[in-house]
Every structure is written in C-alpha cells, then in structure tokens.
Design a protein around this nucleic acid. Structure first.
Lengths: 205, 205
DNA sequence: ACCTGAACACCGTTCAAGT
DNA sequence: ACCTGAACACCGTTCAAGT
C-alpha cells in the first residue's frame, strides 16, 4: 500500500474511467491513465499496486455511485424495481466497465449497502432465512446477466443478424421469436424479465 | 478466410481450450496455442483471422457441446431445468472460458439449437408471442449471471471474506444472510434461483 | 502454395538512478 | 521522500523471405 501525496486513489480511478468512457476499455493501460493525469507511467504505482487494483478502483467508483437509500414505491416489488433500475442506469452510463464489474464487484462498499437495502425490502416482503439468500442471489444473477446481455450481447447487431439468417426449417421458433424481439425495447425487456423474477419470489411455496 | 490444409479450425480450438484448461485464460496467446500445436506462431493466422476469432472458436467448441435434444421431464419446468443444467455443466467444466462466453456466445450453432429447444418447451407451457421472447431472455439472463457468479464471483473466498468482515451495526441483514449462505451449496443455490424464474414464468398475468 | 523468423508497436512491471 | 526513464519479458500482428 503506497502513501499517496499529490493525488488520491479516487482521482486515479476518475482518470481511468475517463479513458474508458472516451476511448473504450481496450484503450485502458497504465500508460494511458498516467498520460491522462500528466504524470509518468511509473508514478501510478505509487497509488496503485498493479493493473488489477486499478480496475478494482474503477469498478468501485462506478458502483459506489449507486444510490442505496430506501427506495420509493407502494409495494415491495416496486421498491426492488427501483433499486435494480439504479444499478442498471449507473452501469449503463459506463458500458465500457461492464466486463470489469463481475470480477471486481466485491470491492464496492456502495454495492454492499445496496445489497443491504435489497435484503431489507425482501424482509418486508416476508422472505426470510435461506430463502432470502436464494432470492438475493437470484435477483443479482438476473441483474448481472441482463445488464451484460444488454451491453455485450448483440455487439453491433451481429447477434440479431445471425438469428435472422437462420434456416427457417431448422429453427422455426427462433425465426418467429426474432420477429417479436424487434418490437421489444431494451427497457421493456429488462423490466419484463425483472417482473418474472419478482413474481417468482412472491409465488414461493 | 484462410484455406486450412493440415489442420482444421476445430483442432485449433481444441488446442486453445487445452491451454486454457491447463494454464488458465491468462496463458492464452497466439504463441502458446501455436506451441501447443507444435507450429510457428504465424502459421496460426492461416486458420484464424485474429485472436478474437480464436476466442470465438473456443466458445463455439464449448457451447456446441451442449446437448440440444428434447430433454426428459414430466413437466415443462423440469424440462427447462434439465436444459439449463446442461449449459451450466458444460461451461462449468471449462471455467476459464466463462469470461469469453458473453462476447462470443452468438457464434455457436449449438446454443442456437438449444435456444430453439427452450422456446419449444416454453410453447408447450403456453407462453406465446412477445411474452415468450421476454421469458427466453429472462431465463438466459439468469443463466448467464448465475454461471458467472458461481465461477467468477467469490474469487477464492475474497467476496465472502469481505462480507464476513462487515460492521454488524451498519449491515445487519448482510451479516445474518452470510450465515445462511454458508449452509447453501452452489448446486442448491443455482436450482433455487432457477425455480424462482420458472415460478415467475408460470405465474404470468 | 504454404510456412517461417525477424521486426514493429504495443503491454505490465522491475530496477537503478535522479532530485 | 517522491518521481523518473531505461530496460525486460511479454503481447498481437505485419511483412519480406524462404521452400
């Protein structure tokens, strides 16, 4: 652990995030971040152990920006929806960091506070014990998958193009489904899937 | 597109997968794969356009191994559970490729056949039209998130350690939940979350 | 025609040297 | 004490040359 002087770890993270937002994740390197800060490459190592830690700081910066305060909403379903939407919007504002969020997610105190709030709402819904663990992890799994699907899935329409070119005889349902898929926006899709998970939590045996 | 002679793209993919399985994803490079095949680095470019395409071939090799045939099961829920389990097992057998599956998923014809089968089961369940699109994407989102959480989440217990060290006063629910989480295995967690999604699909309005 | 090695422009990181 | 640039061991990929 180095002892920062002229800069804070937060400023390092902000510079790295600026590089990612402007030039994409592929452009992130110790050299580009140092350049963004107007310092030598090696000076970075005074604030950060290695590249992995730098990535962790970026994820922390993004996820700490997620509002973890008790959400509005008449029902617990509405409140969870607000909470899930906050993560989706925050991460969606920095799509370049999406591939980093999975591996470095645990470093954010903000996302832990967010999880605490989610657990509180689940408790209000009457979900207790191990059932609540499964509900939280299920919710988290959906959230992670949905956000990745939204931002890394199509890759400039390559996926939908592949499906469109499928032989109808062999893939009758996929062809039919592709037609419907065009009518559904990302927002609607996300909330439709989330509604499934929420109904599943509500309809517990 | 080069014209392979002595080797097929499948053999290239198998060599790359062998490197990943043995030494991890970080060890994957054009040089190590070429070495695995006993050929010069540049000879690889006769079979593959670039590194990105090589990664795509590996994902294809893994996902094409997913059985897409009509699954056994008395109810549609059981049949979807079997289908989801096949993906989880196949990917879980090669955890190093997990980070690659998201970006290259669309290249696999096997996963398209799998999706076709899933859509067929959803149709048997009476899920139709845009609702079926949302159900498939929701299921896929859960599957992606759950598999990633299982294989990239803790990172050698770092995550659970972070949660265990949380101040109880500020995170009462997380502390309580962490205790329950220890009692639940990965298998149970996966199927518990999947059951939530399936109940949500069944309980549609 | 197929394959090769040298070379180029990048990486992350180490280390000895500067102030 | 803090910061620097050269250097090392890697990358992916280009290209001219070999058979």
């Amino acid at each position: 652990m180095p002892r920062p002087r002229s800069l804070t770890q937060g400023q390092i993270a902000a510079a790295a995030l600026a590089v990612i937002d402007r030039d994409g994740l592929a452009a992130l390197s110790m050299r580009t971040v140092a350049g963004e800060l107007g310092m030598s490459t090696m000076a970075l190592y005074r604030y950060v152990g290695d590249r992995d830690e730098l990535e962790g700081l970026v994820v922390e910066l993004v996820l700490d920006g997620v509002d973890a305060s008790p959400p509005p909403g008449a029902t617990w379903q509405e409140r969870i929806t607000v909470l899930a939407g906050r993560v989706r919007e925050r991460v969606g504002a920095h799509p370049g960091v999406v591939p980093l969020t999975m591996t470095h997610r645990h470093r954010s105190a903000g996302i832990l506070r967010w999880s605490e709030t989610v657990l509180g709402v689940l408790a209000e819904a009457g979900v207790e014990g191990p059932e609540r663990v499964v509900a939280l992890r299920g919710l988290l799994s959906y959230l992670i998958g949905a956000i990745q699907l939204e931002h890394l899935g199509p890759l400039s329409g390559e996926g939908t193009a592949a499906i469109a070119g499928l032989p109808r005889a062999e893939f009758p349902r996929m062809a039919e489904t592709a037609g419907h898929a065009l009518l559904i926006g990302a927002e609607e899709e996300f909330h439709g899937g989330l509604a499934i998970v929420l109904r599943g939590i509500a309809a517990r045996t």
